[in-house]
Write a protein that binds this DNA or RNA. Structure first.
Length: 819
DNA sequence: CTCTCCCT
């Protein structure tokens, strides 16, 4: 049955390559048969001797299936020549020469036995998926080969990856290519559709496919939400509609992938789960919305969030291929050919976007403190590596110098995320190992409640795990979680009866940065790391003053809480005794408009206790007062009109000469500490500001020489010919002299300020005080403007002098009679 | 309008 496979033709070349050198790359599309054929073909090679072949698969399902198919090919049972080893399940025997393992299994084995003395070859299958563990496994295998085992064969098998890059990493290993076996698929580009439009567009495309083509339809959507809505809107169609995504039970998934009954058609609405993991029989048409939902880890917050992005080209081609498994097919793409050219060849590999804490722990056990000492296709990014090592140090897995500790080694032996390993070990030390294993199972396996429960409470899940009946309990997953918890309890030899620690306290051991305190509105919390988080306000959990949050989505202003448990104050104090600080904070209380001092007991950003106090150093109180002035604005200071004029005169001089001190509001606010600070005295509330000597404070901004020059450069008043002293207005630029026209008789030169540099703007006023003329050139006004003004006003103000020649008339502020 | 997929 294997003889017809396209891979057969490539096997002789592959064997020759591995006989000649230690490494090779095999590029073969899906359906070529490489997974089953290649390991069996290598079994008789002389370089292998009596050693074994390890085949790496990215999924448990695939590992078991591959072992089964190979064993069947030999006419044997699994566990004889061919065996498998996956998490919590293995079938290997003394005769086993081919061991199919999932990726974590290989890493764990290499950490315990770096030499891999019994292994002759490692085959990395589906390497194009670039899973974190495959990248790590390859890096470790390359180091083992280089340092200890030059006879170890490494074969990278890949469907679509650029073989050249891997070949280079493998020391310029030969690349062997094989034909695939698939039917042609016609691609129809339906034009660009935005993320918001994909649901409607998918509905139309599916209807069109059902009308124009035969066979079943497989549509790719980013997630469960879109799948549900498309299913709703599809309404009555000539086919049965089946959702397909990871959170469904095995039974529901089987239902979706079963071939349609004879004479009927199906429409399967799937996430990327149907891209590689599951094959659906009878699909002739693929409708691809072109998006993928991916998890992205943010090293700054230490949290992940889901993002919906354009799928990569490799991935949409893989989706299209699903239409050509058994006969020629059609693929509708909800984008244009131009948009297709702009797609990324592939989305970034996991190692570039994932939480690297597990990787960093494994590397520390391996002895590679610096990831750069290993060979990578893409090196682990610096920011995520640093965050991971900081976390591991906090958890006690690394010492100050970044070396693995005893605790760290024990953590790495458990098949859990380092946070959960730490929780299990630290919980066990406090007599709660059993419950810690149960919580670890709840947090690492799939949710034991169905999605309909919409309840983030972990305690309810623990109860369900321990047998209490719950309408939303998922029996299959409860069994899985129990099995995992049992396995870990045996591993750490947990005592039977323990429940000393609450679920919340255990969660806090794993996620110390995610202890949260209720704040402000209903359902709103603040995390130790300062981030906001939110629960639905009607959620009973939101009555709790403190939570320990295990899972949340780091999107938006407040992260949404998916899994949490209550934790009480006493537990927080005993867990974090060494991180709780008492500080004396002196701050401005905006409502009271006063400085307040408080003793605060803090855990990170959380204020556990606050007591008002009258203490606080003078300096801190002054700083808080100044902060208050900044908030209230300069108007809270005891300004007088004279002081505002003083400010305006100085602003005028600063405009003229930038080396003159700046008295603008902005500059004054910015420099409060320097100029106002020394004059604050013991002011600690708004009312106290009235007694500040603002004049002295402002004057002190000028040095002695400037104070002397101020009066001559920017006088407050000018003497005019009538003998009056008229105030200048410095709020405008240039400054304005507003004076009755008659008081200026005889003055030809425009008065100046700024040491003669700036002629003032003269506003010549009528006897009633209304401006008649605005001029910066008095002489010109007398010559050319005065006559008209005189003609117009002589009649209206007969009691005032309107001489024919204003230059010789005596200036006066009086009427003719008073003169 | 609460989450893609996978693994020790």
């Amino acid at each position: 049955m294997k003889e017809g496979l396209p891979i057969e033709e490539a096997l002789p070349r592959l064997k020759a390559a591995l006989a000649a050198g230690p490494n090779a790359v095999l590029v073969a599309p899906p359906g070529a048969g490489k997974t089953t054929r290649v390991p069996l073909a290598l079994l008789g090679e002389t370089w292998l001797g009596d050693k074994t072949i390890v085949v790496l698969e990215p999924r448990r399902l695939a590992a078991r299936a591959a072992a089964r198919r190979m064993a069947a090919g030999l006419g044997e049972d699994v566990g004889e020549t061919v065996g498998y080893r996956v998490h919590l399940d293995s079938k290997v025997g003394p005769k086993t020469r081919i061991e199919v393992v999932t990726e974590g299994v290989l890493t764990r084995r290499m950490l315990g036995d770096p030499e891999l003395a019994q292994v002759g070859a490692i085959l990395f299958d589906e390497f194009h998926e670039r899973s974190l563990n495959a990248d790590l496994g390859l890096a470790l295998a390359l180091e083992t080969q280089g340092a200890l085992r030059d006879d170890l064969r490494i074969l990278v098998m890949s469907a679509t990856i650029n073989g050249a890059a891997v070949a280079r990493l493998l020391g310029n290993a030969p690349v062997i290519e094989s034909e695939g076996r698939a039917f042609p698929v016609e691609t129809r580009y339906l034009g660009d559709v935005t993320l918001q439009e994909i649901e409607n567009a998918t509905v139309s495309a599916i209807r069109r496919a059902l009308a124009e083509e035969g066979g079943s339809v497989l549509a790719f959507l980013p997630g469960e939400r879109e799948i549900r809505r498309v299913a709703d809107r599809l309404g009555e169609v000539s086919a049965t509609v089946h959702p397909l995504y990871g959170a469904l039970s095995a039974r529901e998934q089987d239902e979706a992938i079963r071939p349609a009954a004879p004479g009927t058609r199906k429409v399967v609405l799937a996430t990327s789960i149907a891209e590689t993991s599951l094959t659906i029989e009878g699909v002739r048409v693929v409708v691809d919305a072109g998006f993928a939902r991916v998890s992205r880890f943010d090293p700054r917050s230490g949290m992940s969030r889901l993002e919906t992005v354009r799928a990569g080209r490799a991935s949409v081609d893989q989706r299209r291929g699903r239409a050509g498994r058994t006969e020629p097919g059609i693929c509708y793409r909800l984008w244009s050919e131009a948009a297709h050219r702009a797609l990324l060849p592939a989305l970034p590999p996991e190692i570039l976007v994932a939480d690297l804490a597990p990787l960093a722990l494994d590397l520390a056990v391996w002895g590679a403190a610096d990831p750069a000492s290993l060979a990578w296709l893409d090196a682990p990014p610096q920011a995520a590596t640093t965050q991971a090592r900081t976390l591991l140090e906090q958890l006690g897995a690394l010492d100050r110098d970044g070396r693995i500790t005893r605790h760290g080694r024990r953590m790495a032996e458990l098949p859990l995320h380092p946070r959960l390993s730490h929780m299990v070990l630290a919980g066990a030390e406090q007599g709660s190992g059993g419950r810690a294993c149960e919580v670890a199972a709840l947090l690492s396996e799939r949710d034991v409640l169905t999605a309909q429960a919409r309840d983030p409470d972990l305690r309810r899940r623990l109860d369900a795990l321990n047998g209490s009946s719950d309408p939303h309990a998922h029996r299959g997953r409860i069994a899985e979680a129990r099995q995992a918890a049992q396995a870990w309890k045996r591993r750490i030899k947990a005592a039977k009866d323990d429940a000393a620690m609450s679920v919340g306290a255990l969660v806090a051991l794993a996620y110390p940065g995610r202890v949260a305190q209720r704040r402000g509105g209903q359902g709103q919390y603040r995390l130790v790391n300062g981030r906001g988080a939110a629960l639905a306000p009607e959620d009973p959990l939101s009555r709790e003053p403190y939570l320990a949050i295990a899972d949340l989505d780091d999107a938006g202003r407040d992260a949404r809480v998916f899994l949490a448990a209550a934790i009480d104050r006493a537990e927080i104090e005993s867990l974090f005794a060494d991180r709780i600080e008492t500080t004396e904070d002196v701050v401005w209380d905006e409502r009271a408009e006063a400085v307040t001092a408080a003793r605060r007991v803090k855990l990170g950003a959380l204020v556990l206790d606050e007591t008002k106090s009258e203490t606080g150093g003078a300096e801190a109180r002054a700083a808080a007062m100044l902060a208050g002035i900044r908030l209230m604005g300069l108007d809270c200071l005891p300004w007088t009109p004279g002081l505002r004029t003083f400010q305006a005169r100085n602003r005028f001089l600063h405009r003229l000469d930038p080396s003159w001190p700046d008295f603008s509001d902005e500059a004054l606010l910015a420099g409060l500490e320097t100029w106002l600070g020394p004059f604050l005295g013991s002011s600690s509330r708004r009312a106290h500001l009235a007694r500040i000597d603002l004049a002295a404070a402002l004057s002190a901004r000028l040095d002695w020489a400037q104070q002397k020059k101020l009066e001559s450069l920017a006088p407050t008043h000018l003497d005019v010919p009538s003998g009056s002293r008229i105030a200048l207005d410095y709020d405008v630029d240039p400054p304005v002299l507003a004076v009755k026209l008659q008081e200026m008789f005889g003055q030809v030169e425009t008065p100046t300020v700024g040491g003669g540099k700036v002629p003032v703007v003269v506003h010549l006023l009528s006897p009633a005080g209304r401006p008649l003329q605005v001029t910066q050139d008095l002489g010109n006004f007398w010559r050319s403007g005065y006559a008209a003004v005189r003609a117009e006003l002589r009649g209206r103000y007969p009691r005032h002098p309107w001489p024919e020649d204003p230059l010789t008339a005596p200036p006066t502020r009086r009427t003719k009679a008073r003169m």
